[in-house]
Design a protein around this nucleic acid. Structure first.
Lengths: 249, 249
DNA sequence: ACTTGATAGTTGTCGGACAACTGACATCTG
DNA sequence: CAGATGTCAGTTGTCCGACAACTATCAAGT
């Protein structure tokens, strides 16, 4: 079940992460009902053949994500099946989120060029004057319906030396993963409500439409910012949910 | 430093939680610079007099919150000082969030009555037909400027038998904490962009204003929903940030 | 200049032990 | 009988010590 044996060879997930992923899958499959008690830590130790330390860390992760509630002296319980889907704080690409929801994601690039970085972008990405960035404009579709417009900027170092903008198709995250680019680890997102953003190249663009603006800065494993995305989600076509968890216990 | 000794008497926080809180304070005070290495686990064991298990769980919590990055064989590092303030996924009351940001929170109640629950509310809160709910309408201010309008509904059982609506002033969370009400543990929030909400009793209400709508259902320790809040935040006056963390490692 | 190996420092995982809490049941007390 | 108290099994919280695995650095060798 879990990839527990042998050397990690630099890319295996940690055991608690694997276990948390597996349990999250089982929760998503509604293997236990809401409010029901999960197997005890001892049970999970026996079932998965890992130490109680590992089990406890996995359960703690799930609790941090709001999926379960751990009660001392009693056990762990499913918090609520309504919350089992991923919240907005889970950092995955928009297209894979659409796919997870059971829809067909797609993407139409309108614009995709290398240009010199602006002074603001130099500051954000810690670039020198004259360094290049990739400038992307595209729209994102779910089941052939436009869901969002996205304006993305990535510094040139993210891509290989022989990179050509035309090579980029589909999800940026997927492209980076396939070409040894940086791995997204965290992002800081600011949420705004906006009406009629200035730029919109699209014909079927309703001028009085409302949008949820997600202004995001993505960081890689070394805490370097490598992507700035400004995404305008058409209000009502994309459901943003956030699981909020109390910091105190 | 930490409340480590003696019986817990039912309400002491767990040691990892206390330690995480303390380290979060020190991070907020910029005791270490962004990217800088934190004390090693062994150092923290020596400094706080707790076991390495406790230290590791506290660090893992901070990593889940996006404040630090743990790297095997190297140590823990401050992720970025820009992220140190609380994100939207941290469940605290709006007023305390305003206070944490260094502003003066305030609240003006426009409406505060007990009324029978609607059929939708019966379903949400699992009430019987005829049960009462408390219906609140208020606006929230920061430094005497209106920041948001909030419409809240709570079932009657949340309050003591002799409760009168007039007794409720200031933060609802603070009131509940002071009167043995339910403790908020999680909330599921949906985010929307809206223009001119139907209801607005206020004179200084700009009809063409934009709002970020936060539609929240709050759950207590036993995973029972106990409060539904529909808050309209005036766009630009309240900064919503979400720290998004990658689920994979 | 490049590779290899050794080494110290750090996090990851393990097993066992005991403390503290919870719920259920039995027992005592009036 | 009603309520308080004691006991017990089950579960999570915390601790300790040990070793494995990974990282960065440096010395030695080619």
């Amino acid at each position: 079940m879990l990839d527990t044996g042998g050397p990690r060879l630099g890319n295996r997930k940690t055991l608690p992460t694997q276990l948390a992923d597996d349990l999250r899958d089982r929760l998503a499959k509604a293997e236990w009902r809401r409010g029901e008690q999960l197997p005890t830590e001892a049970d999970l130790v026996a079932e998965y053949g890992v130490s109680r330390t590992t089990v406890r860390q996995a359960l703690k992760t799930l609790e941090n994500q709001g999926l379960i509630i751990i009660r001392r002296g009693r056990g762990s319980f499913v918090s609520s099946d309504a919350m089992i889907r991923a919240g907005m704080q889970e950092l995955t690409s928009i297209t894979s989120t659409i796919a997870q929801m059971g829809h067909k994601p797609d993407m139409i690039y309108h614009h995709r060029i290398l240009r010199p970085a602006s002074s603001e972008e130099c500051e954000i990405f810690d670039l020198d004057h004259g360094d290049q960035v990739l400038d992307i404009q595209r729209k994102i579709l779910a089941d052939d319906v436009t869901v969002a417009y996205s304006y993305d900027v990535l510094p040139r170092w993210v891509f290989a030396d022989d990179f050509q903008p035309d090579q980029l198709t589909g999800s940026v995250f997927a492209f980076l993963a396939a070409h040894d680019g940086p791995t997204p680890l965290r992002a800081l997102a600011r949420v705004h409500a906006v009406a009629r953003p200035q730029v919109a190249w699209d014909e079927d663009f309703a001028a009085d439409q409302l949008f949820v603006l997600l202004d995001q800065l993505h960081y890689d494993q070394r805490a370097r910012p490598f992507m700035h995305t400004t995404s305008y989600f058409i209000e009502g076509r994309f459901n943003f949910t956030v699981v909020r968890v109390s910091p105190t216990r």
